[in-house]
């Protein structure tokens, strides 16, 4: 194996568009942390939500194709930043442990899938393979005083028997990583509540209600910003924040980061490499406050 932390990287479709800043910051952070990402050659869409609502075999085959593509790579496993892609990959792998199911999936592939590579989120790799301590040691610009509500979304840890990572009701991985980069993690209770997910298009009122509640409670907890690990959560909370404010007559101006952006910031990576300018709610003032406090401390 080439290096101790080399993984086949599955960027996912949203990483090419709506959450390009998640993809870019993930790559930048992994590079800085010595985690080598090798893109799965010729990867394809995981099927997202539509595939598995129509056909489990087809849905599994879409993910299995990507797993197959990674099987000849010299890597320790497949990782992806997106919880939805992760769910599809892991559920496919989980279901293929059933021989009969796997046969049907293999029929749809060019060659049978070995299905023996571990599949993890980037978050799990940073948390378990590197760890908060090792991360803290690399921090150059601690995010001192930044009050964060950590929001994991509903599918990162669920169902627990498939996802097999952290607690499914009260996950703490991102909390510990954020503490490691110097931020202050608020006791945000709705860590795994649903944001409304893709209802943003079909039933906007559902998202304004559910995501609105997340913002309300985050603000009540004293958080100045939220930190997420999911492109859809981030989009609902950030891009739709104006819609939410309009619907609920609220006035949130809550920056919503990807956790990779904040780790990158603490590691001293450039704003450009983290694409902070892609966020809809401008987080600039938060970093200026940290900077001001740091200069004051220095004097």
């Amino acid at each position: 194996m080439s290096s101790s932390l080399t993984f086949a990287y599955y960027p996912g479709c949203s990483g090419q568009g709506t959450s390009i800043e998640y993809d870019k910051s993930t790559r930048a952070v992994c590079k800085a942390l010595g985690i080598e990402l090798v893109d799965i050659p010729d990867w394809s869409c995981c099927g997202s939500s539509p595939a598995h609502t129509v056909d489990h075999i087809l849905s599994a085959a879409l993910s299995a194709r990507n797993i197959l593509q990674a099987e000849d790579m010299d890597v320790q496993g497949i990782i992806t930043p997106c919880p939805s892609c992760l769910t599809n990959l892991k559920v496919a792998s989980h279901r293929m442990r059933d021989e009969q199911f796997k046969e049907k999936v293999d029929d749809l592939l060019n060659e049978p899938c070995r299905n023996d590579l571990p599949i993890m989120s980037v978050l799990q790799v940073i948390y378990e393979k590197l760890g908060p301590k090792a991360l803290a040691a690399k921090v150059t610009n601690p995010l001192k005083g930044l009050k964060l509500a950590p929001y994991y979304g509903c599918i990162m840890n669920r169902p627990p028997e498939v996802m097999d990572f952290d607690d499914c009701e009260n996950p703490v991985a991102m909390d510990h990583l954020m503490e490691a980069v110097g931020a202050e993690v608020m006791p945000f209770p709705l860590k795994v509540e649903c944001c409304g997910a893709s209802f943003g298009v079909a039933r906007n009122d559902v998202v304004t209600k559910l995501s609105g509640k997340l913002l309300d409670v985050a603000a009540d907890c004293g958080a100045a910003a939220m930190v997420t690990a999911c492109p859809l959560c981030q989009m609902n909370l950030d891009m739709r924040q104006d819609q939410i404010n309009r619907a609920n007559k609220s006035s949130h101006k809550m920056a919503v980061f990807y956790y990779t952006q904040l780790i990158g910031k603490a590691l001293g990576l450039s704003d450009a490499s983290l694409m902070l300018d892609k966020l809809c709610v401008d987080p600039g003032h938060l970093f200026r406050e940290i900077e001001t406090a740091r200069t004051a401390d220095a004097v």
Partner: peptide
């Protein structure tokens, strides 16, 4: 053990 009820927290 039921993290969702917050017993102990």
């Amino acid at each position: 053990r039921y993290e969702e009820y917050g017993g102990g927290r």
